[in-house]
Amino acid sequence: MALDQSFVGRTYPPTSPYEVGREKIREFAEAIGDANPAYTDRGAAAELGHPDVIAPPTFVFAITFKAAGEVVRDPGLGLDYSRVVHGDQRFAYVRPVRAGDRLTVTSTIEAIKSLAGNDVLDIRGEVHDEAGEHVVTAWTKLVARAAEEA
């Protein structure tokens, strides 16, 4: 089913703030088996010039993807989420996410395409901190596989 093209360019309201916790960063770093001390040791992070422990580069996806979920579940868009797979992912960082950040995400639908019966949705998530400073942008490409390929 083709998605409604009029949604291209639509921007959704910012999410309520997500507070980045030190122990959540530690849990994530342990889950990916990454012992880099910048993720768990404030002293080590400070030696690198960071005011608190920082998060691994892909940590922020949990926040931006949750925000993208509001786009995906927008009934007007007509996406069949049960058929969605993750196509591409890209991040551009102004600075690393760090403990204590209160982050909001503003999601925008950048493109909607139909390729070989698959619906392809490009969502951009702009992540800002409590001061309104830009922290990172995440681009997520979602592909809803054509139903007849089931």
């Binding site: 880099n36 910048a38 993720y39 690198l48 010039g49 960071h50 920082i54 691994p56 580069p57 892909t58 797979v85 993750h86 196509g87 591409d88 992912q89 890209r90 991040f91 551009a92 960082y93 600075r95 690393p96 681009w139």
Partner: peptide, 11 residues
């Protein structure tokens, strides 16, 4: 890890 400026992949 803070020296990563951009990072992208295709699955």
């Amino acid at each position: 890890p803070g020296a990563v400026v951009e990072y992208g992949v295709r699955f």
